Computed example of a mutant assay.
Amino acid sequence: MGVFPNFDGLGGIGDLKQVIGALLMFVLIIAVLMLIVSAICWAIAASHGNYAAAAKGRVGVLVALGAAVLAGGGVAWINWLITIGRQL
């Protein structure tokens, strides 16, 4: 007996996938923009000797990088889970 998820059982699942894809695009764009802004702030603050602002810029770079990795890796992780679910 094969048990597998029925993604067509819910109405509007295709629209939901499009909304999630659009939100993921916005998250990735914002993460890249924040990465650029934080890196610029880090570089300017470090060159002027403002180490408190440089530390905040470094934290911004790391947070933006983490958000981009999680958002990008989330799609691969969900696809992997769906593939594993079909094999069970």
Rank of each mutant, 00 (worst) to 15 (best):
G14D: 13
G14L: 02
G14F: 04
D15V: 00
L16Y: 14
K17D: 08
K17G: 12
K17Y: 09
V19Q: 07
V19R: 06
I20W: 11
I20E: 05
I20T: 06
I20D: 00
G21S: 12
A22K: 02
L23M: 12
L23K: 09
L24D: 09
L24K: 05
L24H: 02
M25T: 14
M25Q: 10
M25A: 10
F26L: 14
V27R: 10
V27T: 15
L28Q: 13
L28S: 10
I29A: 07
I29E: 01
A31G: 15
A31C: 15
V32C: 02
V32I: 07
L33N: 02
L33E: 03
L33G: 04
L33T: 08
M34D: 03
L35C: 07
L35D: 00
L35Y: 05
L35W: 03
V37M: 09
V37F: 13
V37H: 07
S38E: 05
S38Q: 06
S38A: 15
A39I: 05
A39P: 03
A39T: 04
I40A: 05
C41Y: 07
C41F: 11
W42Q: 08
W42P: 01
W42C: 10
W42F: 15
W42A: 12
W42N: 11
A43W: 09
A43Q: 14
A43Y: 14
A43G: 04
I44R: 14
A46E: 12
S47P: 01
S47R: 12
